Simulated assay, not measured.
Amino acid sequence: MPSEAPDPTADVRERHAADDVRRVTLQKDGPMLVEGPVEVHLEDGGVATSDRFRVALCTCRRSRRYPWCDTSHRRRRRDR
C-alpha cells in the first residue's frame, strides 16, 4: 500500500499559529491597512517598523512619510 504524500503546507501552518496571523485590508484608491506590529522591508534595504495596533501602508507612493500613508492619495486620484 503506497504511503500518502506529506502535506507541504503543514509545517507552514504550524509555524504560523492563529495569533501570529496578520490581517491585511486592501482599500480601493487608499492605503493598505495591516494589523501591527509590523516590519516593512524597503527596496533600498532599509527597514521601517511600527508597534502600533494597525498601520496604513502607502500604495500610491505619494506619501512624504513613505512607507506610511499620510493621506496624500486623497489630493489627486490615480489616472487609470
Rank of each mutant, 00 (worst) to 15 (best):
M1Y: 13
M1E: 13
P2V: 03
P2Y: 09
A5D: 11
P6Y: 09
P6E: 15
P8A: 11
P8G: 11
P8C: 10
T9Y: 14
D11N: 10
D11G: 10
V12A: 13
V12T: 11
E14T: 15
E14M: 12
H16D: 08
A17I: 04
A18M: 12
D19N: 13
V21G: 03
R22S: 11
R23F: 09
V24Y: 07
V24T: 03
T25E: 15
D29M: 09
G30E: 00
G30K: 00
P31A: 15
L33H: 04
V34A: 04
V34I: 13
E35L: 05
P37Q: 01
P37V: 03
P37C: 06
V38R: 02
V38H: 00
H41V: 14
L42W: 07
L42Y: 07
L42S: 07
L42P: 03
D44P: 07
S50G: 01
S50P: 01
D51Y: 03
R52E: 15
R52L: 12
V55T: 01
A56D: 02
L57G: 03
L57I: 15
L57E: 03
C58L: 01
C58W: 01
T59Q: 15
R61A: 13
S63K: 00
S63H: 00
R64E: 14
R65V: 00
P67K: 02
W68T: 03
D70K: 02
D70C: 05
D70I: 03
T71P: 00
S72C: 09
S72R: 09
S72G: 08
S72W: 01
H73K: 08
R74T: 08
R74V: 06
R75S: 14
R76I: 11
R76F: 06
R76S: 06
R77P: 00
R78G: 13
D79I: 05
D79W: 05
D79K: 08
R80W: 02
